[in-house]
Nucleic acid binder design. Sequence first.
DNA 1: TCAAAAGTGTTGTCGGTACACCCATGG
DNA 2: CCATGGGTGTACCGACAACACTTTTGA
Lengths: 229, 229
Amino acid sequence: MLNSYSSADKVLLAVDCIIFGFDSEGLKILLIKRDFEPEKGKWSLIGGFLKKDEVLDSAAIRILDSYTGLQDIYMEQLHAYSEIDRDPVERTISVAYFALINIENHNAELIKNYHAQWFSVANAPKLIFDHDTMLRHAIRRLRYRTSIKPVGFELLPEKFTMRQLLELYEAILSKELDKRNFISKINSLDILIKLEEKDMMSSRKGSYLYTFDKEKYDAKLLNDFVLNL
Amino acid sequence: MLNSYSSADKVLLAVDCIIFGFDSEGLKILLIKRDFEPEKGKWSLIGGFLKKDEVLDSAAIRILDSYTGLQDIYMEQLHAYSEIDRDPVERTISVAYFALINIENHNAELIKNYHAQWFSVANAPKLIFDHDTMLRHAIRRLRYRTSIKPVGFELLPEKFTMRQLLELYEAILSKELDKRNFISKINSLDILIKLEEKDMMSSRKGSYLYTFDKEKYDAKLLNDFVLNL
DNA sequence: TCAAAAGTGTTGTCGGTACACCCATGG
DNA sequence: CCATGGGTGTACCGACAACACTTTTGA
């Protein structure tokens, strides 16, 4: 019967996390080498099972923490994947989550201790199950998000140069952007604070460092806008 | 253990369908009077449980069919809801789906035979569980969808007037639109075919009927665009 | 002095918005 | 002849895209 609780099938519910980071080499994702069967030793998204007394959002946070030591990362629900044989061991539906984090802040030994590793999105290894599909969808979502909310705060270090911000957007959208147009668009958003300080690493002239104006940034996060890049 | 299949909890997985329709009275949703406990007799989204050998997308289609007789309706996955006590009987995670359908084509006795009923979105009854939240999210998604894909084919009759199309968009966005600007934007999309025929019901002068140019419409469905209304 | 990256403005085009009047017809 | 809804065009403005040269300074 459709409407009978007792006769309905129960299933395993997994949560998989797509964690994006960014550094000088480009856009990255965090993967783990799977340490149990099946597909032991293969690269995989960070994932685990939902517990009975747990909400999906919390499960995502707990699972990420347990594999990477990363704490309190806000993740956004992406999609539920339910192909019958997506997991060969047992019928498992998986709800994917994604988040953006700052590699510098979180790289530390934490990641190493837990055998998680960053990979360039561009040449990530083949992943187990349907994780490649999840990743593809997450990238699409990230691009979309970029077009309606500012991105950067989550992915860049505290202080950064315009070039870094530009390269972040180029990595996400995987296309080249005009420097001058980009800068004027970003300035028109009015979410950056230009510091006195310069970064002297990148050039002889040195380039000004910026930070996000947290208040204004958060305000922009509330109202959607369209940023055509 | 995190990584043990055998010790992981299993849960009930439900699917709930948010079905939008449109007629002269405005934007509507299809609800059913729940015929089993708990909350028997209350209004509810159309929902049921996922079967073990079934993909979520198919479950949504099957469940919709079983409650309304509606066949082959394409639905889009919305979100998974997992609050612990969202269903008081048993821990149940629900994946919500939504679709747009044409009321005229589907109203028939079908709906009546199955005790499903259309309600104005504007004054829908209070729904059970977290269905109100689902509906709210679905409306938000519908508005978003409207801004990046053409909408109409799914919701309007085969032949329709510009006014009907305008009113559909006004209902979805719940704001007034300028007739002249709306028409020129729609025309610039180049997805409508203007027929010889006029609808003489609405006015003395009569207004031209249009149909969607299926080919061009479908092409637009593939490429996102931004339609600022 | 030169290489390498930083920084900076203008112009044309397109699309969006605001806005008001005439048309056709049946009653 | 008039009330009702149908149909149409223009002008302004802001956003986007394309585009190139000067500045700084360490080696």
